[in-house]
Nucleic acid binder design. Structure first.
Lengths: 327, 327
DNA sequence: TATTGTTTTGTAATCGTTTTCATTATAGAG
DNA sequence: CTCTATAATGAAAACGATTACAAAACAATA
């Protein structure tokens, strides 16, 4: 495999000139440029990014930390990140943390080792203090789930408002006994969506159903089923369910169907995220849509700007209530 | 940010010794080792992989080329790849090709530029000749979808046999008019699964239903719906459907439900892949399960072995027919 | 033609490691 | 205490690019 030296020798120029041609940078005579390009072709030379990276002290890699790649919510975000990154000559290093802080710190080391130029964090499980320290030295942005305290920039939506809209809608179509299937409240989004839920109930003077809140261990279909089974066992069954994730909602839906009750006539259900599959369930799922793809694009741009040393501003995207058959 | 020179100076040793401590390689006195480690801590020094990579002429990055990250089939494979790679101190560079050969070749350049040590290809859209040329110089393995012609090693299943099993099962439970929802036959798996379908029909002497084969443009829920709508419009409706992907099957299922027909009493349906969703549909989907995670692990191991210069053998995993409510 | 200014090119240092080979320190044997 | 064998260390050359600075080539002007 040829290197820049060989090209220079064969073309009868210096490596500096070859490098200049490569980066079509400063002024090189058309004649030499042509000659060099010809030799590059003859030797089918490809510049090594290893050398270039070392010299430039950059990896042109963005580290993307997600809890779980199988969750379609993240797939869409990653789509956006990748698209945006590639346009600006970056690549993404996708790493799945499984919300395990040990695993996460293995990956975070990649930035300390200069193998990544920045991090897009989807689910910070690392302890806050460490994270904030880290963000003073390195370029980090948060996407979707974030930590308010520090000053690490983030891209997200207004979770409280979105949940409020969902629940208000359930109330307006006649529901009072509205269950909440929430995930672990260690997540900001979980706390915020719960607050939106409570706010809507409070606003319409609905009280006394605090046992209709269920917290799942994780976000999986099975957790959704489990939650719903639990809720159906209550002496006062809910007439509607708001789940903080489509995945949970779909599990719940399955459980309702299995119990012989009908959606939406017996129980209405609203999910969150508008994953592709939410339109394939029976019945189709009413849900809150987040602009996942755009959020991915925005966080990649934000990170790249941060790497370049620019000042960046937090972004809050709009959500939308998508009404379908489950309500 | 400290470098190895500073550590060496502060510890009063040479960079060689520091490097040896770092790689806890050859013999370093316990005393100096301790001293060096202490300085490393004091300076919170982290070795740069950029320097190391250049020196070692490796990137320790595996390029994973998938057509579409949103397809849960691939997510599971990626899980396996990543898990395996990380254990051996590799990271994965995940790249989505969208089955676009131009995009694919951008990514393939990464290996020419030494930014990746090898490639796991899921959906070779690059032209075959180029691919085979490439594989003479670089380490490449194929996973799931592959090209038989060349001698690029692959990990897959026996698609023909799997399809044969699915269709034979449909026949045995009493179906004759069995539709096939296939994807584009540019894919090997599509051609093979079709052959399995035909083999089963032929074996049981079923003929005359060749208009019950539908080819979709892509693999999406919508394509599945479209296909089913088309099949339901035939004068002789099928009593069973075999779809070459769960995604297509789920779309088809949706369409059958929408048309007022019942699954499985009116129409039975079998999918392929056993994605997580397939257990959440109404009714749950009978499907062929592939060991996606294990396939991911196997292809990562295979690639790493190839990078190390070892000889590798193709692997064909077993499939399994998972009978659920849709049949 | 000599002088100046502007392009174009080359030399050599640099990025941060690893590793070969030479050298020095240490221990063990006589 | 000296001599050897071995273990521990260091000096310096890679790896393959980029780039500051110096030098050479060229063009323009007097």
């Amino acid at each position: 495999m040829a290197n820049i030296q060989e090209v220079a020798r064969k073309a009868g120029v210096s490596v500096a000139t070859v490098s200049r041609v490569l980066n079509n940078n400063s002024n090189v005579t058309e004649k030499t440029r042509l000659k060099v390009k010809q030799v590059i072709n003859e030797l089918s030379y490809e510049p090594s990014r290893l050398g270039r990276n070392l010299r430039n002290s950059e990896s042109r890699l963005l580290l993307v930390l997600i809890p779980n790649i199988s969750n379609p919510f993240y797939s869409e975000i990653i789509n956006g990140i990748e698209e945006t990154a590639v346009k600006q000559d970056y690549n993404i290093l996708l790493c799945e943390t499984n919300s395990d802080s040990e695993r996460e710190s293995i990956y975070i080391n990649l930035i300390k080792n200069r193998m990544a130029d920045g991090i897009i964090l989807m689910d910070p499980t690392v302890n806050k203090k460490k994270l904030h320290e880290l963000s003073e030295t390195y370029s980090i942005v948060q996407c979707s789930e974030y930590d308010k305290e520090g000053n690490i920039p983030f891209v997200s939506i207004n979770n409280e408002l979105a949940a409020y809209h969902a629940v208000r809608y359930l109330i307006k179509i006649g529901n009072k006994k509205i269950a909440l299937i929430n995930s672990d409240e260690k997540f900001l989004y979980a706390r915020e969506r719960k607050r939106g839920y409570e706010k809507a109930l409070h606003e319409f003077g609905i009280t006394g159903y605090s046992d209709l809140i269920y917290h799942t261990d994780a976000v999986s279909f099975e957790d959704g089923q489990l939650a719903m089974r639990c809720l159906l066992d209550k002496k006062e069954k809910p007439t509607a369910v708001f789940a903080v994730s489509d995945i949970l909602a779909i599990g719940a839906l399955k459980e309702i169907n299995a119990s012989g009750l009908k959606v939406p006539s017996d129980i209405s259900i609203v999910g969150f995220d508008k994953i592709a599959f939410s339109n394939m369930t029976y019945p189709t799922l009413t849900t809150i849509s987040q602009p996942m793809y755009k959020m991915g694009c925005a966080s990649a741009n934000m990170l790249i700007n941060k790497i370049k040393g620019k000042q960046v501003e937090n972004i809050t995207f709009d959500h939308e209530l998508v009404i379908r058959e489950s309500t």
